[in-house]
Design a protein around this nucleic acid. Structure first.
Lengths: 106, 106
DNA sequence: AGTATTATATCGTATTACGATATATGGTGT
DNA sequence: ACACCATATATCGTAATACGATATAATACT
């Protein structure tokens, strides 16, 4: 899949994933790779996005003991849940627009 | 609509528009604004993209007299038609993946 | 002990959308 | 004739973003 096609939608994917369950960065990457094997979701994308989402207060990270090791586990805030709903709506509007625009006339 | 959400899909939109009918840059911009008022499609995006698509041989530009003025009219090449079909397929695959990934479980 | 996997983090680069700007021409109004 | 505006082509710079590369360290496996 195109390197660029994900652009602008990765925040939505991360919020949707964290809505399923709180996760730390590495687990999130594995989860997304499992859900969408067509994309990369390397650490170079995940961590900066998590930090950005935390700055925006959409998620909050907490150091927790997971299997005997310190892991930074991220979960949605109230604002994050709202943002997710709004981004979901935006996605649906966007995708239906593009689908209509590229629909084959013949 | 988000500034970035279009990323990676503008080539598809331009190819789809030129499949409807050959157009010059300005007319293409007006056409796309009419189809998708939510986005900008300023000249700073259209012309570089047209040049890029011409370099890729997906479209070809020809100087033509349109209403008494020289206009650079672009039309799809054979390769461009193939590329459009492939990009259409990619879009459908991409959008169904994302839609599935962000589907509300509750 | 040594290697692989897990895990967090940052940097640099390429791509892309898009605003700003330059420039020129045709049409319309006065 | 002149001003003004819409049309038209083009380029530049900037910001946002995905992502590869790299650094570092702890845990698990052999």
């Amino acid at each position: 899949m195109n390197r660029q096609s994900l652009k602008g939608h990765s925040e939505l994917l991360i919020l949707a994933a964290l809505a399923v369950r709180p996760m730390h960065g590495y687990a999130l990457s594995e989860y997304l790779k499992g859900q969408l094997p067509e994309f990369k979701f390397g650490m170079g994308m995940i961590y900066p996005l998590l930090h950005k989402l935390e700055q925006k207060k959409y998620i909050k990270g907490e150091w927790k003991q997971v299997l005997g090791a310190d892991r930074r586990v991220y979960s949605l805030t109230k604002q994050g849940k709202k943002a997710l709903q709004s981004k979901r709506r935006e996605w649906r509007a966007f995708s239906s627009l593009i689908t209509k625009a590229v629909a084959q006339s013949s």
